[in-house]
């Protein structure tokens, strides 16, 4: 059993097709949709957690590639800039997955990219701009 968090970018021409349905029924992959959006240019963006056997997942990724869905790993998309972070903890209650946490004796904030679902809540909350996102998803 393998598990991974991925970002799917759907080009505008296939945004109305049931890609996720095909991924589940044809490849047998378990898809947990963490976040999904379609921008005004009809490009879709979906953050998912895939789980299944290695064969099923590679079959699924091949299918996505064949229909033109761009797949990138999720982990590196949000960054915690420690030199800007003051450890104030304003972001903590806004993080839905507890990817941001604080050590309550040293009051230093830590960020676990594994838990992050790239919801951007911390970007809006942080007054020091200590959370940043890579350009392609900004």
């Amino acid at each position: 059993m393998k598990q991974m968090k991925l970002v799917f970018i759907f080009p505008a021409n296939i945004v109305e097709e049931p890609v996720t349905y095909n991924l589940i029924t044809n490849c047998g992959v378990r898809v947990n949709i963490l976040r999904a959006s379609i921008d005004p240019g009809k490009q879709g963006r979906m953050v998912v957690e895939l789980s299944g056997e290695e064969v099923q997942i590679s079959q699924g990724l091949n299918y996505l590639e064949s229909v033109g869905v761009q797949v990138t790993p999720l982990a590196q998309k949000i960054q915690h800039l420690e030199d800007r972070c003051t450890g104030c903890t304003a972001c903590l209650p806004h993080c839905p997955t507890q990817a941001l946490d604080v050590d309550r004796s040293s009051w230093s904030v830590s960020f676990d990219p594994e838990k992050c679902i790239v919801c951007f809540s911390c970007l809006e909350t942080c007054i020091y701009h200590a959370m940043s996102v890579e350009e392609q998803f900004a």
Partner: peptide, 13 residues
């Protein structure tokens, strides 16, 4: 209800 702070205890110390 979860809580957070706007002041930094780390910098205050």
């Amino acid at each position: 209800v979860p809580t957070g702070s706007f002041s930094s205890y780390r910098l205050a110390r």
